[in-house]
C-alpha cells in the first residue's frame, strides 16, 4: 500500500499491455521515446542493462513464433531478466481449462512479466485476469499485436520523423490480421491517415467505422501514400476459400514495382514477416534497401520490447507483501 511514495506519475500508467486500444497518444509517445534510447544501447558493444535484474520473465507461446519469441527473449535478457521460454503447442494440450490452469501454475512461480501469444482473440486478456504479474500480449487471434504496431510506429517515426499526417496503406488479409488492427488503432491515435487495401473477402464487416479508407483496387489504394505496409496471407486461405489462387492474388494484391510506383516516390515498404515472397510481395521489392524497412523493423522490435518490459516493470511492486503469500 505504500509503494506509491516518492514516485512521480508513472511513465506508462497501465498494469498490462493487452492492446493498443485504451492507450493514449502520450502513452504511445512515451514508449517510443524510451525505445529510441534502447535502439542506441543495442548498437553498442555492451548491450547489457540491469533494469530487470532479479525479475523473471516467461514467454508463453501457444502458437509457434520464431521471431516474436526470440525478440522478446533477447529484449528481456538485455535488460537483465531471467527469461524462460514455454512453447505450448495447441495439439498437445487440451484446450480451454488447461489454458487457465497453465496460467495459474506459472503464476505460482512468481514471475514478474508474462508474454503471451495465443491463437484465440481475447485469450491473453482472459489470462491476465488470472495472474498477479504484468502481462504483455504478443498476439491474440485476430485481435491485437500491440508490440508489432509499436515497432512499426518506431520504424516509421525514425525514418519519416513523425507519424502525424502520414498516409499509410495497410494491404492484404485485413480480416484475419491482428497486426492490421493494432496498427489501425495506433496510427489513427497518432494522427496518421490510414487506408486498408485488399479484396472484399478479406475485409472485416464495418472496417470503415474504425476510421480507415477502404480500397479494393491496390493501385488506387497506394496513390500518394508514404508507407506501404504489407500483411502476410496464410497460404491455406488462398486455395479458393477467400481468394481464387496464389497467382490471382499476386496479380492484384502482390506488391511489385509497378504497383509501388503509384505511391509517393519516397514511399517505404514494411512487412511484419514472415514473408511469402512472390505471393504478397515481390522479392526485389522486399530486398530493396532504399525502399524496404523490413530488416529495420526486426531491429526496432527488440528495442520496442525492451521499452515495454522496462515501462511495465516500473509499475511492479518492489517489495513482496509481508504475509509472503499471494492470494
Amino acid at each position: 500500500m505504500t509503494s506509491a511514495d516518492k514516485q512521480p506519475a508513472p511513465l506508462f500508467p497501465h498494469r498490462h499491455l493487452l492492446g493498443i486500444e485504451g492507450l493514449s497518444p502520450s502513452d504511445i509517445t512515451s514508449l517510443l521515446d524510451l525505445a529510441d534510447t534502447y535502439v542506441e544501447q543495442n548498437r553498442q558493444v555492451d548491450k547489457k542493462g540491469n533494469v530487470l535484474r532479479g525479475r523473471t520473465q516467461i514467454n508463453l507461446f501457444f502458437e509457434a513464433s520464431t521471431r516474436t519469441q526470440s525478440s522478446f527473449e533477447l529484449a528481456g535478457k538485455r535488460l537483465g531478466a531471467d527469461v524462460m521460454n514455454m512453447s505450448v503447442s495447441s495439439s498437445s494440450v487440451k484446450k480451454g481449462e488447461t489454458l487457465i490452469d497453465t496460467a495459474v501454475t506459472l503464476n505460482a512461480m512468481h514471475p514478474d512479466l508474462i508474454i503471451i501469444r495465443h491463437q484465440n482473440s481475447g485469450a491473453v486478456e482472459l489470462l491476465s485476469q488470472k495472474v498477479s504479474c504484468a502481462v504483455i500480449n504478443a498476439g491474440d487471434g485476430a485481435h491485437e499485436h500491440p508490440t508489432q504496431a509499436l515497432l512499426d510506429a518506431l520504424t516509421i517515426r525514425r525514418r519519416k520523423g513523425r507519424l502525424e499526417g502520414l498516409r499509410v496503406a495497410i494491404c492484404g488479409d485485413i480480416l484475419h490480421s491482428r497486426v492490421a488492427r493494432s496498427n489501425i488503432l495506433l496510427l489513427n491515435a497518432m494522427g496518421a491517415r490510414v487506408r486498408v487495401v485488399g479484396p472484399p473477402t478479406l475485409m472485416p464487416v464495418g472496417i470503415e467505422r474504425l476510421g480507415v479508407e477502404v480500397f479494393h483496387d491496390m493501385k488506387k489504394g497506394l496513390e500518394g501514400v508514404d508507407i506501404v505496409m504489407m500483411l502476410r496471407l496464410q497460404l491455406e486461405r488462398m486455395a479458393g476459400s477467400y481468394v481464387p489462387s496464389q497467382r490471382e492474388y499476386f496479380h492484384f494484391y502482390g506488391l511489385d514495382y509497378s504497383k509501388l510506383a503509384h505511391a509517393k516516390p519516397d514511399a517505404l515498404v514494411m512487412h511484419p514477416g514472415p514473408m511469402n515472397r512472390g505471393v504478397e510481395i515481390d522479392s526485389a521489392v522486399a530486398d530493396d534497401i532504399d525502399r524496404s524497412l523490413i530488416r529495420e523493423q526486426v531491429e526496432m522490435g527488440v528495442a520496442v520490447r525492451m521499452a515495454v518490459l522496462d515501462a511495465l516493470s516500473r509499475n511492479l511492486p518492489n517489495e513482496l507483501p509481508l504475509s509472503g503469500g499471494r492470494s
Partner: peptide
C-alpha cells in the same frame, strides 16, 4: 454477431 464490434474484437461473426 457479425458487426464492427466483431471486427474490433477479432472474433468471427455470424451475420
Amino acid at each position: 454477431n457479425e458487426s464492427e464490434l466483431a471486427g474490433r474484437l477479432g472474433l468471427a461473426g455470424t451475420p
